[in-house]
């Protein structure tokens, strides 16, 4: 696959990081504006911004993914408030950690669907954990529907990334030809 990050010029990588950061802000804004659907479930993020984090894990490196995760949590802090910041931070960091572990540990190849779905599940699990620790509420039963939503969202994200990859391949190949 012609998308090796070291073959990108530093300027290209910088621009890509900037664009991905902006995109993660937009997705986070949409994510945190969605209403809650089940009674008793507070409106939590469903994990759309994980698309950008996953993309940067694949096409950039883990450090960039971490920076994007932290930055979008701070963005949510200014957009929504401190509670949403806590939820986004906990969910995003846990999802990133699990995704990196799943990426690094197994010897054979992992499918993007599996990676994204597990990341989505743990994104919401992280949110529930932070919420129950901070509020001292016993909300573990909310974990079931939210984990399910995370799984579905993860599969959706993997599907979107799958559609985008042929375009990305072409983009990267052209860029490499231009900038060496």
């Amino acid at each position: 696959m012609a998308n090796s990050p070291k073959s990108m010029s530093p300027l290209n990588r910088l621009v890509l990081r900037g664009v991905l950061l902006a995109l993660s802000f937009i997705l986070s804004a949409i994510d945190h504006s969605l209403p809650s659907f089940l009674p008793g479930v507070p409106p939590m993020s469903i994990g759309l911004a994980n698309l950008v984090v996953l993309f940067s894990l694949i096409f950039l490196n883990a450090k960039d993914a971490l920076i994007i995760t932290l930055a979008k949590s701070f963005f949510v802090f200014f957009l929504r408030g401190p509670i949403s910041f806590l939820l986004s931070l906990s969910g995003g960091l846990l999802a990133l950690l699990i995704e990196v572990l799943i990426w690094v540990l197994p010897k054979k190849k992992i499918s993007i669907y599996f990676l994204s779905a597990i990341g989505g599940i743990f994104h919401n699990v992280g949110q529930i954990l932070a919420y129950s620790f901070y509020a001292k509420l016993n909300v573990w039963v909310l974990m079931f529907p939210l984990a399910l939503v995370g799984l579905v969202t993860g599969i959706l994200i993997a599907f979107i990334l799958n559609l985008l990859t042929p375009l990305m391949d072409r983009w990267f190949k052209n860029r490499r030809k231009d900038f060496g």
């Binding site: 696959m1 998308n3 090796s4 990050p5 070291k6 073959s7 694949i58 096409f59 490196n61 990426w103 190849k109 992992i110 499918s111 993007i112 990676l115 799958n162 990859t165």
Partner: peptide, 11 residues
């Protein structure tokens, strides 16, 4: 280059 994306399959 160590192509990190080779570790992922798309199906």
């Amino acid at each position: 280059n160590k192509d990190s994306s080779q570790h992922i399959t798309w199906k």
